[in-house]
Design a binder for these strands. Structure first.
Lengths: 213, 213
DNA sequence: GTCTATACTGGGATAGAC
DNA sequence: GTCTATCCCAGTATAGAC
């Protein structure tokens, strides 16, 4: 998963490994940005999580914004790469859409920072960095599956973009507003595997049935 | 709507009207909290919008948190009062649910601060103030309509709470993440009446069809 | 490459005059 | 009831030693 360029075998056991430090900063930053967004995150907190000093952050990423961009690129790479797979546009559109949605839900459940960052990006930064990283193309992929499904008579007639946004909303709201809705399940952990599976099934059913002819 | 206690008829025309000042602060604060949430809002900005000084905010609301609570109570009062209307639980459940959803969408469109505050509450405050103000009961109302619809055989069998969350998500995501998705419509204003109406129809159709037997 | 120390700024909150 | 002035903490960013 590393760049592979840095394969020094004799690297000393001491804490002077640039790639490792960078990676640790990115991990900590993702967590912080997930909690406060770009504006709310504290560089001091990121440094403390990482175990280095604030100065290191500026040494490697130049600014808070630079770090934020690096985090965004790294953590939405999965979504973006997945969405550019041409096989989404072959075979049964209903099956493909369900696959895309389930993958999306699985990623959100596995890393709850992602949904938070999505919401914060819109609220704090007007989606500026998102556009830069190429997230909008994810919606394009979904819309294209919908278009093909309509042409093939699998889906009813909808506005592909509006529908895509509503679909993503039905999936992601549970995660990014989990702190608001957790009160509905006093005795359960909202991110437990069982609860996540239940949300997945409910959301997928609502969406797929909502689209069928 | 005022307390009624303060009914001085001979109040001078000069700018020394407590109720008016309070109301102006609340208006400005709602806007600011909509843009930055509790943590991100700046009291200085609220004061400037209002045309008074920061000191006034503390004079009337004691603290930033106090102001925030007052804003929340005022601006979600509509949702909460509406949801406690017993007539939601009479007549055709499908019709009632659609009515509730359309009302919810209309309110969100009319005051886009609401969806933003909803999201910020979850992200920044873990829904703490929301619970205080009684927002969770809104979901209870929706869940109850769903339950009755299932009993009557109008809706298919779903988990009423999970479904409610997905429904709200499908409705509200368009608004609170409008800055992320605006790029999908390069030439249109996402909050224009036409676009809002289109979202409404798509969301309502997706949800209602998704629930029907 | 990593640290300590510090310059600089912004923002919440309060004291006290009017 | 409203203002000005100010305290003080927190947070970004940098300089410079090691």
């Amino acid at each position: 998963m590393g760049s592979g360029i840095h394969m020094k075998v004799k690297s000393p056991t001491q804490s002077r490994d640039a790639e490792l430090t960078k990676a640790k900063i990115l991990d900590a930053a993702e967590e912080e940005f997930g909690q406060g967004g770009l504006a709310g995150a504290r560089t001091e907190a990121i440094a403390q999580r990482t175990g280095v000093t604030k100065a290191m952050i500026y040494y490697y990423f130049e600014s808070k914004e630079g770090l934020y961009e690096a985090v965004l690129e790294r953590c939405f790479q999965g979504h973006i790469q997945a969405s550019s797979d041409p096989t989404w546009h072959e075979g049964d559109p209903a099956e493909k859409l369900e696959g895309l949605i389930r993958q999306f839900l699985a990623r959100s459940a596995q890393n709850p920072n992602l949904p938070n960052i999505v919401a914060y990006e819109a609220l704090q930064n007007q989606g500026k960095y998102f556009k830069q990283v190429g997230v909008p193309q994810y919606y394009e992929t979904m819309a294209r599956i919908l278009e093909r499904g309509m042409q093939m008579g699998v889906f009813r007639q909808v506005d592909a973009y509006h529908a895509s946004v509503s679909i993503v909303g039905a999936c992601v709201f549970y995660f990014c507003c989990r702190e608001n809705v957790k009160f509905l399940w006093a005795d359960k952990d909202i991110m437990s595997p069982e609860m996540v599976a239940a949300h997945m099934d409910e959301a997928v059913n609502l969406i797929m049935r909502g689209l069928m002819i």
